[in-house]
């Protein structure tokens, strides 16, 4: 009798190996955040088929991975604050550095940050910052140097802010000399009271892409992401980027492997492939975001290498703070956010 289950198991094994004959990898990411041709090249070289699934924001990705207990996808690309959250909740698995031959290409400035000490769970893919965007044709960029400048009365009903609690609070926290990751209720309250004064100046909280209102000429001043500026400049070179002196907000989107991933080996191969110098170069050229890959940077043309929007000076990066999960304090932030938006 014992033989039958054994036989069954053998048949099943055979069946599963047959299924796995076609090697694959399931990537969960923003649409076109990895160039199509890069994916195709990866498949050509390794024979691993990439199933590329998309989400519209970090939050949807997190909820889905959380509810599925980390199953269903082999690679996800969370932003820094989510890396810290997912790591703490056991949704990610450790990445084996021994399998990543190209890890040495990454800039040490962007490794070992508090959101993932030692980069045990994440490998930086692209990064950027949130600073101030200005249309040089309408406003002299030299007159804007700090977040505090946005509070000026003359911008009444003119500003664009991103529709993101943490980013908006970042401005006010920095302006008051606090950490962007503070969980101290008094500091958050001070920032809130400061933001109340800013509300009169707000024309729009942008929920999708801040470059659009800039390009359309509906706003000339406000928050914007560095990558968006690069994209906007292709259409209108007057859109310029300013690193506010209190500190821009920095973020990194990293590769990570969910704890329930089925193709862990392939995921490592993929991450290693993406770390190759020429792949990183192509990504920057197509997407306009900054790469943490020094070897890729060296391959780019002079102009791109020296573009401070893409590659800000080292002292700015070193002094910068990356967004982390704030845990339960999120409720405090959101409570104030609701009040701001209902005019309280």
């Amino acid at each position: 009798m014992k033989k039958i289950p054994a036989l069954l198991a053998a048949v099943l094994m055979a069946a599963t190996t047959a299924l796995h004959a076609e090697e694959k990898l399931v990537v969960y990411n923003w649409a076109e955040y990895i160039p199509e041709s890069t994916l195709a090249d990866f498949t050509k070289e390794t024979g691993i088929k990439v199933e590329y699934s998309t989400y519209e924001n970090n939050e949807v990705m997190y909820s889905k991975i959380k509810l599925q207990k980390g199953k269903g996808y082999d690679i996800v690309v969370p932003s820094s604050y989510l890396v810290s959250k997912m790591r703490q909740e056991g949704l990610l698995q450790k990445i084996d550095p021994a399998k990543l031959t190209n890890l040495k290409n990454l800039s040490p400035d962007l490794l070992d940050k508090p959101y993932d000490p030692g980069n045990e769970y994440s490998v930086p893919y692209l990064w950027g910052s949130t600073g101030i965007g200005v249309n040089a044709k309408e406003i002299d960029p030299a007159t804007i140097t700090s977040w505090a400048d946005l509070w000026d009365e003359k911008w009444q009903g003119k500003l664009l802010l991103t529709d993101d609690v943490r980013e908006v609070f970042h401005m006010a926290l920095k302006k008051n000399g606090f950490s962007t990751n503070t969980t101290n209720p008094d500091e958050i309250k001070t920032a809130y009271e400061d933001l109340q004064k800013l509300m009169l100046n707000v024309l729009v909280f942008n929920a999708d892409a801040p470059r659009e209102p800039f390009l359309a000429g509906d706003v000339n001043l406000g928050m914007i992401w560095s990558g968006e500026v690069i994209m906007a400049q292709q259409e209108n070179p007057d859109i310029q980027y300013i690193f506010p002196k209190e500190g821009a907000g920095f973020w990194v989107d990293s590769f990570a492997i969910p704890v329930g991933a089925e193709h862990v080996e392939n995921a490592h191969k993929f991450i290693d492939y993406m770390l190759r110098p020429e792949v990183g170069q192509k990504v920057v050229e197509e997407l306009g975001y900054s790469t943490p890959n020094m070897a890729s940077k060296a391959l780019l043309d002079e102009d791109t290498q020296n573009n401070p929007v893409i590659f800000p000076p080292a002292d700015i990066v070193k002094a910068s703070e990356f967004q982390q999960d704030v845990g339960d304090a999120m409720k405090v932030y959101d409570g104030y956010w609701e009040k701001l938006k209902t005019g309280k």
Partner: peptide, 28 residues
């Protein structure tokens, strides 16, 4: 809330905003 956010500038909260925020951002 999507139409109101994109065209109205998301300056007012609607019921849909609050529910979405609680589920996705605050995770309460």
């Amino acid at each position: 809330f999507y139409v109101a956010d994109l065209l109205g500038g998301a300056k007012n909260l609607l019921l849909g905003n609050i529910i979405k925020n609680q589920f996705l951002v605050v995770r309460d």
